[in-house]
């Protein structure tokens, strides 16, 4: 069983607009009317759970939820076939707003809420639940931002508990939450942006510098690090190899980039959990990411579409390992 942890889930509200009006003078000018909208459960781990369920993999989504928006998250996931195991809190689950402007769909405008304050008692309740469920897990995904009130070292602590229980850990995060998780040797690491792996005195613009940063994480004990290089290309570093993954697709085909990164990671995880090779997993992951970017929905749940996109993906071993 795969357990996904999203400590700061959200209701994702997507608005499609013809033109986003900002800093206009008259009331008529600053009103932007959406041509349509959609509501779904959001957050990195939540997105990964949604993908896994669509592909038939049993998984449990956990984290904190509260208020009416918390019910939206739980209900949405249950309707998608995800098993839910959230801790109910006093404050309300956040809402993230995504505005997709016609013709600029590939660069969405995002307003991400900070999220609810988590009390010590709520965190303790989560830890008890986590310790219980992790005994049944083969993989644990720790993904997304840390809500107010929770120490940024939490992913390190959760990763350690998962490892003690024999589960492999995936961390998809940024900043302190990511760096503090590395000493717990997660199996798979996906930084939010490559800058989160910045080594002192380096910039991560060249392929070489990205590889060096990834190899630094591998030296900490990780088995795979996946780092974004450009929109349709990533670099994966393992102890044995360095892989360059590229998709030959025009970005003009992209309709919604939100969630595509999570679909990419979910695709890799899905394949690894099924025992596929690294190369196969990376190809499938990129296919899933591209298929999601080309779909208006955040996450592409259509296996045929993912497999079609995989044909446009090249996975090349560019270097031997560290």
């Amino acid at each position: 069983m795969i357990v996904t942890v999203t400590l700061n889930p959200a209701v994702d509200k997507v608005y499609w607009v013809d033109s986003l009006k900002v800093c206009q003078i008259t009331e008529e000018e600053f009103l932007t009317r959406a041509t349509r909208s959609s509501t779904s459960a959001g957050g990195k781990g939540v997105n990964i759970s949604r993908f896994l369920s669509a592909f038939g993999t049993e998984n449990v989504a956990m984290g904190f939820v509260g208020g009416n928006t918390g019910h939206v998250v739980v209900r949405y996931l249950q309707n998608k076939g995800v098993t839910t195991n959230f801790v109910w809190i006093h404050e309300e689950t956040r809402i993230n707003s995504i505005i997709l402007e016609s013709g600029r769909d590939h660069s969405p405008n995002l307003i991400n809420d900070l999220g609810p304050q988590i009390s010590e008692a709520e965190l303790e309740r989560f830890m008890r639940k986590y310790r219980r469920i992790v005994k049944r897990a083969s993989w644990v995904v720790l993904a997304g931002s840390i809500p107010p009130g929770v120490d940024h070292g939490i992913y390190g602590e959760l990763a350690e508990i998962a490892r003690e229980n024999g589960a492999r850990v995936v961390v998809s995060a940024g900043g302190d939450a990511l760096t503090k998780a590395l000493p717990a040797c997660p199996y798979l690491v996906k930084p939010d942006t490559r800058e989160h792996l910045l080594l002192e005195g380096t910039s991560l613009k060249s392929t070489e510098s990205i590889i060096a940063a990834g190899q630094h994480v591998i030296a900490c004990g990780a088995q795979m690090v996946v780092i974004s290089h450009h929109v349709t290309g990533d670099i994966a570093i393992t102890p044995d190899a360095v892989w360059e993954i590229n998709a030959k697709v025009p970005t003009s085909e992209f309709k919604n980039l939100v969630g595509a990164d999570d679909a990419f990671l979910a695709g890799i995880l899905y394949q690894l959990s099924e025992g596929a090779s690294e190369e196969e997993s990376l190809r499938f992951g990129m296919g899933a990411g591209i298929a999601s970017a080309e779909s208006e929905k955040k996450i592409c749940e259509d296996r045929a579409k993912v497999e079609e996109e995989m044909k446009k993906v090249s996975v090349e071993r560019i270097e031997e390992g560290a």
Partner: peptide, 16 residues
């Protein structure tokens, strides 16, 4: 079935 694992442990207080 509804796939939800909401449950409690026997030592939590009534208030919770």
């Amino acid at each position: 079935m509804t796939k939800d694992l909401t449950a409690v442990e026997k030592d939590i207080p009534v208030r919770e």
